[in-house]
Design a protein around this nucleic acid. Sequence first.
DNA 1: TTGTATGCGTTATCAT
DNA 2: ATGATAACGCATACAA
Lengths: 341, 341
Amino acid sequence: MVSIKDLSLACGVSTATVSKALNNHKDVSEETKERIRKMARDMGYVPNFASKVLKTNRTYNIGVVFSDEAGSGLTHDYFAMVLNGLKCTIEEKGYDFTFVNKNGSISTWDNGVTYLEHCKFRRFDGVAVICTDFYSPEIIELIESDIPIVTFDYIFNDRSAVVSDNVRGIRDLVHYVYEMGHRRIAYIHGTDSAVTRNRISSFYKTCEELGIDVPPEYMREAPYRDTTATYLRTKELLELKERPTCIMFPDDFAYIGGFNAITLAGLKVPDDISTVGYDGIEISKYLEPSLTTLAQDGYRLGQETANKLISIIEHPKTSLVEHIFIEGKIFPGRSVKKLTT
Amino acid sequence: MVSIKDLSLACGVSTATVSKALNNHKDVSEETKERIRKMARDMGYVPNFASKVLKTNRTYNIGVVFSDEAGSGLTHDYFAMVLNGLKCTIEEKGYDFTFVNKNGSISTWDNGVTYLEHCKFRRFDGVAVICTDFYSPEIIELIESDIPIVTFDYIFNDRSAVVSDNVRGIRDLVHYVYEMGHRRIAYIHGTDSAVTRNRISSFYKTCEELGIDVPPEYMREAPYRDTTATYLRTKELLELKERPTCIMFPDDFAYIGGFNAITLAGLKVPDDISTVGYDGIEISKYLEPSLTTLAQDGYRLGQETANKLISIIEHPKTSLVEHIFIEGKIFPGRSVKKLTT
DNA sequence: TTGTATGCGTTATCAT
DNA sequence: ATGATAACGCATACAA
């Protein structure tokens, strides 16, 4: 590994001059700069990250907390889109992207390492907290530290956050369905979480504003992305005396289960019953009939998260705490029938 | 940031003793070790990664090259599974996972940084090359360097690789279809690549072994995951005078397009025509009818990649170059009809 | 068992 | 415009 010292010897100048030249300081003659740069290239010089960090305390590395308990997070379409936007943007701005894990063998103590310790250890310039248990003490400890942080889809008081606008999303969907003439709308929502609560409140609120009655039996719960549970809840809804004319599902993926329940009951979408998803995963466009859904702009969500974080890192003084809401967009598939009342 | 020096002052011992104590060397009394460890915990000591690397040349950080030109790689189901296995395994073993990008603002020269330079700079203990253009000179330069490397789904002579056994996969599928009584089998394969070539050869070879004739018009090409192209190729196949009884698709996702073509032609799967996918993405289980496909064990592929790489890192002498083939498993959906001939 | 001293590669301060 | 030198925090060879 060729070092600055090697370069200084080869060029017949001091290490100080080499360092300055490579960092393009003004107090080195253009001529020597060029000579040194050429030599660096020729000798295959690559700066030593460790020494650099030791001096400058800047790693140009961003930590990403992403760890759902199921461990299947990366295969989750929505988060995959977000991560993709995050990764691309981080890289564009000249940073690296490192996952923050909870093990870390370099630990001094045996009993593992907390997220905060890990982040301090790696000296991340900033941390994006994407997908995790936001109630865990470890995460809270991390959030409350003095490391630049942006949370995703979850809001802490005094920290910046980027969130998908679920309230608006559900509102738009209900309005859409309403305008298509539907009045008996059922909602199979996901299991409890901050996101779910927002969606449910928005559902009730919007229905109330529109004067739609929501019988309790129209509200069902199924875990996100759980096709089996969604199948069962859908079946229950279909067996009601007064069957809904439209069912809103937890997400596009879970919808597959609901769709099967409908088909197996001998019914057709959208002729016999209308359906609405959430997320806008790629495949929902290609289903037959294509699914009406709220397309979350996953890429942009990741992008904004990266942008905000890097802005905090690079302009700590002028960058204020803000909660950025990103709206989704209705993808009008063919799964909602126009009812003429 | 509390350092070893701070600890040494607080404990009234030398920095050397503190260092030894924290690294659990044998030549420090158990008693002082405990005292120092307690103090470290109390004062919130976290070792400084940079200094440590500077001394030891070990980062416990693994670089991952993952950059398809489209930039949508992370949302690709198959690769998402692989990355997931890779990430989990890397973390289990106490390493961190960092994406290797091509920008890197820390560069000394303006014209960007090569993959190799970036890896040298970050001093990754090893690099996994997952998804990229394996023909690009930059990648080749990286592969030929002396950094511990494992490639994924692509084999270089003298480097270890983990690959999904496509030859075996296609072979198994064809056998399955054959045993279900099919003799007129069409194959819509992906666009040219090492993987595609393996699959096509295996298809021809297996058919030959089984005495199946493959008319040229039964071989079509559509880009992977391209539902539109697959829709068109399928339509063409359906319009042949002698229509195939079974169509094999490039992948499960693209299949959606093919399925729609079949349905819109007024035909039914599997009664009128049988279908077979490739990959085993989650959703194919939940389609109606469920898709017969070759389930690649993405998680395990990632896992093995990580294991091999870490083995090379930790036992450079005893770890030999090997090409690890991981077999997939047929998922017998209901999309292939049993033909009685 | 503990302590002293040195160097890893870089940058920054202060001279020259 | 260039150079000498200290310092960043840690691990280790060697001395006590």
